[in-house]
Write a protein that binds this DNA or RNA. Sequence first.
DNA 1: GTGAAAGCGCTAACAC
DNA 2: GTGTTAGCGCTTTCAC
Lengths: 335, 335
Amino acid sequence: MDKTKKFVTIKDVAKVAGVSVNTVSRALGNRGYVRKDTKEKVLKVAQELGYTRNCAATALRTKHSGIVGVVVVDNSNPFYAELVKGIESEARKNGYSIILINTDRSYENEVKAIQTLLQRRVDGLIICAVQSRTDDIKELVDKKIPNVIVGSKLDGIKTNYIHSDDELGGYIAAKYLIETGHKNILFLNAFDYKYAARMREKGVRKAIEEVGKSVKLTVISSLEGFENAYEKFKQLLSEKIAFDSVICYNDIYAIAVVKASKEFGLKIPEDFSVIGFDDIEFSSVVSPPLTTVRIDKTVLGAEAFRALIKSIKEDITTELVVPVELIKRESVKVR
Amino acid sequence: MDKTKKFVTIKDVAKVAGVSVNTVSRALGNRGYVRKDTKEKVLKVAQELGYTRNCAATALRTKHSGIVGVVVVDNSNPFYAELVKGIESEARKNGYSIILINTDRSYENEVKAIQTLLQRRVDGLIICAVQSRTDDIKELVDKKIPNVIVGSKLDGIKTNYIHSDDELGGYIAAKYLIETGHKNILFLNAFDYKYAARMREKGVRKAIEEVGKSVKLTVISSLEGFENAYEKFKQLLSEKIAFDSVICYNDIYAIAVVKASKEFGLKIPEDFSVIGFDDIEFSSVVSPPLTTVRIDKTVLGAEAFRALIKSIKEDITTELVVPVELIKRESVKVR
DNA sequence: GTGAAAGCGCTAACAC
DNA sequence: GTGTTAGCGCTTTCAC
């Protein structure tokens, strides 16, 4: 560890360029009045000396870090991976950086993540809330820290929300199954403390209610993750529960269903149909390719960032519902 | 935007606690001499006032930001997604945060990413280099900024490297095919400016040379991404090139091969065998489940972080080769 | 053990 | 148009 001075400062630049630090600051920041040739000289000297701005100092002075905090459950989950990609890309375009923190589905970790991000004085936060508890988000909102919640709406908390049209998604999925002659739908849902789980179920029920008692619905709730969905579905199969189609809370569950079915010698869509949710990249590549309710996760991310910036710069509150789309592939039997 | 003072400072805490800022600083930082009851009082007041440390100020003063920069090609690619997860998790355990930047395979973006990270005065960088050019990394190393390169070794640049045992991986893949009676291997490789591509090919060739002229190898180089691999492999199929097995640079290509084969009515492993590389999560779930050379990406990430910390704190240079393992599933025909 | 004072690198008033 | 000065919030000598 050499303790030699590592970075050139504006003071160094000022000395060499023969001007004051202030002038350097304005020249470098394209701000205030600087004569054209003075500016050019400063820029040239800065370049030659290898000047690299110190954002920590700027942040301290301006109370503006140019960093946004991104809190997700698990960045390796394809849904969040693409979401983060959308956020990062939009942030970068706007001169911001992102600090990424995973919560691993733990509320305690979410609390810590927010705390960390506040200490780092991020300009705002984009959060995919774990939703098992929401006090931390409430507190954040009360503190008036700019934030946007992605993928859910939280009861009694007024803030920026970006999420997909989950109710419509559930509705079009169920409706499609009904239209293609399915009579006995199994809905594999997540924990119902999740907003999306409640809304998707609501949409599914709506579609079924529209056709009266002719279609039966069974809801299995509280699934979480691939392994859990896989095990639970295998159990359902071994219990010989009757259904001719299954709607899954997300594509991960749908892939678990496909895998379990293969092991039971069941064929999709011959033996039953499957619809997923999200349209993660691999949905088109599994066999059979999954019919699914597509969410544009990159757009979701980009919109989340834009909403955050609006909240930071103009104090505008956004609630945006991103449209969904049914992608018809081969996991649904069309009669 | 209210311009009211948002955060409590140590000065505020000092005033209320009736001590000097210095004492507060030491009490909060568990550093220097503070009497036990003074410390308790300070902590209590800080708590009551809702004090949140300002890392920007600390960073400015101590030249230590507690942030590491992570530069990857694309965080939504499953390989990088898991790698980032490993880095983030280990960083968090050690009180660090990560700033994540994607390069989208562009050298210019890599240059910009590094520049941004330096401005933010990260304590170090973890980089998955695009490798098409390496001057930027060279410069970084010359500047003595702590860094670790993941997934490759760069010619003539002495720094910290963490990568998988690519040559061995190529070797065991080819050897397994040979042992199972394959005589005509097709190797779908990436651009050979990539270290891993060169090493994997070297390993493959080594295994084949060991058995003399009895096994034929065809190498198709310069593939990049799913779509490209998919198109190129379809073209190979339509050209009716002869082979009884294919080794893919990564699982993404292997999945592309599986998809293209299905469209040509070809069955894996009956018509030919396929081996992938990486063992991304979906490899076990595609049909047929992929035989692949497993890399523990989370470990790769965690080790990268540890190497970075060693470099920062003790100025120790690490070069770690993470072992690989052949995962035998069903995409290889065992005679 | 605790406090006073200086200063990290930068920007924002305010002179001139 | 440019320079001087103060200070963002914190840590670090150095007295006492």
